[in-house]
Write a protein that binds this DNA or RNA. Structure first.
Lengths: 243, 243
DNA sequence: ACGGTCGACTGATCCGCGGCAGGATTGCCG
DNA sequence: CGGCAATCCTGCCGCGGATCAGTCGACCGT
């Protein structure tokens, strides 16, 4: 594993061994680099004519607002993830996208994508794989909110983040940097911030995880997996599916 | 709008005016017709080498089971929807798929799809649109479970079903046939069956909707939309986006 | 040195919904 | 015809998590 690779290349490399031509196309996709400041939304609900991006650095979240002022965070995006792909296809954004940290991202036009697909189809396949893995995570998120209690749900969420970050070289079994506030955690997990605080305390006091000062320290990985009923199948993947 | 069209053609016709060549390709996709009985799962979690299908007749649901025996229904599929597309891309299914009624579906191979894309690209675009609309519904489902109370959540869900069924000619503003039991409704909405029962009673007693004997009768569409905070944008769509 | 803001944290109280237990209704099968 | 299995429906009780109402410390900008 080459540490100098872009996060996206690392992630796709899990699925497919990329050759030089394909790496070059990936590089090409990163041409139009942009920066965003934390807190100012990149995309608003209802906005049309929006570009898609590949996240290079920083964290963003996509969320929906309700009339009563509460919000539900649908997903977080980390380096290597696509941003707003659905907004492009659907022509109008159905959710907001907010950078949680300073963000660097590469703008991707519809035509860039189409060209990448036609000149390097294996790369296209790998991107579809990555996209369906992301969709699978939204589904897992749904299951968590619908059927898991606060403790399991939080544990599961932290493990999921850990798995995703590990794929792009920003986490290990021991832990990862995490810029989330307890409020954001609450909005993601469908709980109140007050209750998240209590749950984090319990996880800390039982010696499973400590989430403090922007760092998630996993003390007992296996017990945490057990508690969260976490499906390790995509963690234990043994090397690329396609050679 | 031609009533003899397949549900899929109706749905795609919302996005794109389909010409005869494209309709022919759609027809061709329906070659390998299969039947399934209610209750016997088509796809199991963890299963590999699975085909994708286009639903022609009947209802199915996709769900995940938890260790404690509870389940979360992720989505329902109705005529015109794709089935297990993600399982094909991902190579191994991450959820179960169960027919809730007798079902007719057409098996679709990866190669069929690729061919359809290359010979009739506009059709491919329309299918991507349809797929991202479906994904948007999973997202809306997530928001509902995370941030809406039981009443709003149920109301929203019924409206969503209504919107989808109307697109394929199986529902109107007045109501639609619905083979769901209260147990399934509960598993979809992350509630208990007992509580669903109470919620349905309340919706009935306030004169908004009646769900009995397999039929959902919407008595006051506008009030229901108001209660559920339902986003009508994709209902009010004024004709195809692409000509 | 000063409010002002934002995030972490806590205790007390309240309520939406789950769990349990049981009755009524319907449809199916022998 | 009776028996059985779903499914619907209801009342009661308790719990998990929301809400309210704070305190405390860190980090602003002035």
């Amino acid at each position: 594993m080459v540490s100098a690779q872009s996060p996206l290349a690392m992630k796709l490399g899990i699925f497919v061994v990329l050759n030089n031509a394909e790496l070059a196309v990936l590089d090409e996709l990163h041409r139009r680099r942009r920066k965003f400041v934390a807190g100012r939304d990149i995309v608003h609900q209802g906005q049309t004519k929006q570009a898609a991006y590949i996240l290079a650095e920083g964290w963003v979240c996509s969320y929906k607002l309700l009339r009563d002022g509460s919000r539900q965070i649908i997903d977080f995006q980390i380096p290597g993830d696509f941003l707003g792909l659905r907004s492009v296809l659907f022509r109008t954004a159905d959710h907001n996208i907010e950078p949680m940290t300073p963000v660097e991202a590469s703008e991707v036009l519809e035509s860039d994508l189409l060209q990448a697909f036609s000149t390097t189809p294996r790369l296209g396949t790998a991107m579809l794989w990555a996209a369906s893995r992301d969709e699978a995570m939204v589904v897992e998120h749904l299951v968590g909110i619908g059927r898991r209690n606060a403790l399991e749900r939080t544990a599961h969420f932290l493990l999921e983040l850990n798995a995703r970050l590990t794929l792009v070289g920003r986490g290990t079994r021991a832990g990862f940097d995490c810029p989330l506030s307890q409020y954001m955690l609450a909005d993601a997990l469908g709980l109140s911030a007050v209750h998240i605080n209590r749950v984090l305390r319990e996880l800390r006091e039982t010696g499973l995880v400590t989430f403090q000062k922007g760092y998630v320290a996993i003390h007992d990985f296996d017990k945490l997996v057990e508690l969260a009923e976490f499906d390790r199948s995509y963690l234990d993947q043994e090397g690329p599916l396609l050679r």
